[in-house]
């Protein structure tokens, strides 16, 4: 069998969240959780990140694959498959913009595998990052290759040390919906507003922590998600925009333009785009982002 691809690792089936977090904490950086596996299998085969010593299977944890309505809030389990999220009656009736966003993610086959938590925690798709040949800043290397290289899909906003753009469409959608994430780890659980979850070089999950629930505090009265992609069938976003209006106001969020989701009131986001600092090859993305934001707000 073609074992030349994948290096040996230990495999655990976690039965509870506590077991999973304890295992992930024990191995530290050298363990990776697996749920859908669509991103991790890529890492195992392409080896652009070191192969973990241990893989903790989260799919065996029961109860985290539900979408429920709790008062006015919508609670989504992190192990919900993307296809189940899109087909959920709660989502269809209360918040169809999530279903719209999910149906634009990847191919139907991969949506049958991928989970919500995995989508939120996925790696960026910068082509220097996902190649084993390049040891870029995000992987702990000396420099980001985008400014001096081919940066046509790079960031146009908030470039500090890394010019990769956030790949998750659900991150954009949930930011517009002002969601909060329940994060469980060895030190107990905490709630993180999704706005504070992402940082330039990844997310704020500490060692051993996993996302267990996503809570959307209020179903929007009006909301939409738009995505621009190069390939018509399925692709990662060149720019994506989500706008949601609730009783507390309107939040706009832009994905695919910066290492983190750019969010705020529609005016704030528009003015942020006005002062964009594109790289040498991606000036076109500014106009695409402006247009996609306008479409989402319409």
């Amino acid at each position: 069998m073609s074992l030349r691809y994948i290096t040996r690792f230990a495999h655990y089936d976690a039965k509870t969240v506590e077991e999973a977090t304890a295992l992930l904490n024990k191995y530290g950086e050298k363990a990776k959780p697996i749920a859908g596996g669509t991103a991790l299998m890529d890492i195992l085969k392409k080896k652009y990140l070191p192969t973990p010593e241990a893989i903790v299977n989260l799919k065996t944890i029961p109860g985290l694959d539900q979408v429920t309505e709790d008062g006015g809030a919508i609670k989504i389990g992190a192990l919900t498959k993307l296809v189940d999220l899109a087909e959920s009656s709660v989502i269809k009736s209360k918040c169809p913009m999530i279903a719209d966003a999910v149906n634009l993610i990847s191919s139907p086959q991969l949506r049958n595998m991928g989970t919500v938590g995995g989508n939120l925690c996925q790696q960026v798709r910068c082509w220097y990052y996902v190649k084993a040949d390049f040891f870029c800043y995000r992987k702990g290397g000396p420099v980001c290759y985008q400014p001096g290289g081919d940066n046509r899909y790079g960031a146009i906003l908030q470039q500090k040390v890394c010019n990769a753009v956030i790949a998750s469409d659900l991150a954009t959608t949930f930011t517009a919906l002002n969601a909060s994430l329940k994060v469980e780890g060895p030190g107990g659980s905490r709630d993180v507003p999704i706005k504070d979850f992402y940082v330039t070089l990844g997310n704020t999950l500490k060692q051993g922590e996993i996302i267990t629930w996503i809570t959307i505090p209020e179903a929007p009265s009006k909301g939409s998600f738009k995505k621009f992609k190069i390939r018509k069938t399925w692709d990662f976003a060149v720019a994506s925009a989500a706008v949601a209006t609730t009783s507390k106001g309107t939040i706009a969020a832009l994905g695919g333009v910066a290492p983190v989701v750019v969010s705020g009131t529609p005016d704030e986001v528009t003015s942020a785009l006005g002062s964009a600092t594109p790289l040498s090859m991606n000036k076109y993305k500014v106009q695409i982002a402006k247009t996609i934001l306008k479409e989402a707000m319409a």
Partner: peptide
Amino acid sequence: YGECGSCTVIVDGRAMPSCMVLAID
């Protein structure tokens, strides 16, 4: 790598690229 779909099989009634599923899972 799950991009071409030629290894698609039906797992529990759903089409999935089998190259992206660990057999142990």
